[in-house]
Amino acid sequence: MVDRGQTFELFRFADTVQSVAVEVRCGAPLTIGKERYYPAEIVLKSDFVNGRVGLQVVHEDLDEWERCLDALQAEEVAEWPAGGPSAWVDVVPDDPVEVTVHDSPSTEIAVRVPIDVASKWLEENRLRLDRVRAAVSASS
């Protein structure tokens, strides 16, 4: 059984020195009309800079992240979540993987982090997506 107030990682890019992850709180969402908004944070950790920036995740964002994973598997650049006035990340599947965290468009702050990801990073991120989907479904 899923703890409805639990926080799950939607994705994580990490090596021994730095990481970028998105943490989603899958408890009681903010409901406006039929849409449910789950509070989330992009979390960046490195020896140089550490930071968190908030955003809201809706069900469609999970589908969009799955499309991003497909793009990354095809060695294409991915941006998530697309559009909107919130924070976002873009991922370049080079060696090392480059993850850029963008704050909201109003601040125009961005931090690019090269990460030597483990060989199974794609499969692990698909499993994280599945766990968030299950938690979101349980909170409906």
Rank of each mutant, 00 (worst) to 15 (best):
E108M: 09
S46W: 00
W121D: 02
D15I: 12
N125Y: 03
E66A: 01
V89D: 02
T7I: 14
E76K: 12
A21W: 03
V43P: 00
E60L: 06
V101G: 06
T16D: 14
V89W: 00
S46F: 06
P105C: 01
E41L: 10
Y37M: 09
V99L: 00
V99T: 09
G84P: 07
P39Q: 08
A118V: 14
V97N: 02
H102E: 08
G5H: 09
E23S: 10
D103L: 02
R52N: 13
E60W: 07
I115C: 04
K34S: 15
F13R: 09
V101F: 05
S104A: 07
A28C: 09
A21N: 00
V92T: 14
V43N: 04
V113K: 00
P96F: 01
L129Y: 00
E23N: 12
G33R: 12
S139G: 02
A138D: 15
G51E: 08
C68E: 02
V101H: 09
P85Y: 06
A87W: 05
W88L: 03
I32R: 13
V132C: 03
S139C: 10
N125C: 04
D3E: 11
Y38K: 04
L69I: 11
A82M: 12
A14E: 10
D94T: 15
Q6L: 03
V17H: 07
A14F: 07
W88D: 04
Q73D: 04
D94I: 09
D103S: 10
A40V: 08
F13A: 04
M1N: 14
G83C: 10
Q6E: 13
V113H: 03
R67E: 14
E41Y: 01
A21F: 00
V17F: 02
L30P: 11
K34C: 12
F48G: 15
E79M: 14
V92M: 11
R4I: 13
V111K: 10
S139K: 05
A135W: 09
E76T: 11
K45M: 09
C26I: 08
D103K: 07
P85K: 07
L72G: 08
A28N: 13
T16C: 05
V111I: 15
P81Y: 00
I109S: 03
P105R: 08
S106H: 10
R4S: 12
V58R: 13
S119I: 13
T107N: 03
V99K: 02
I109A: 05
D103C: 05
R67L: 10
F11Q: 11
C26E: 00
P93Y: 02
C68H: 02
C68R: 01
G33P: 14
T107I: 06
L127F: 05
E124H: 08
D61W: 04
F48N: 15
G27V: 07
N50Y: 01
G33E: 11
V132N: 05
E35K: 14
V17G: 12
A74F: 01
G33W: 10
D90N: 13
E98V: 14
D116T: 14
E79P: 06
F48Q: 15
M1W: 06
E41K: 11
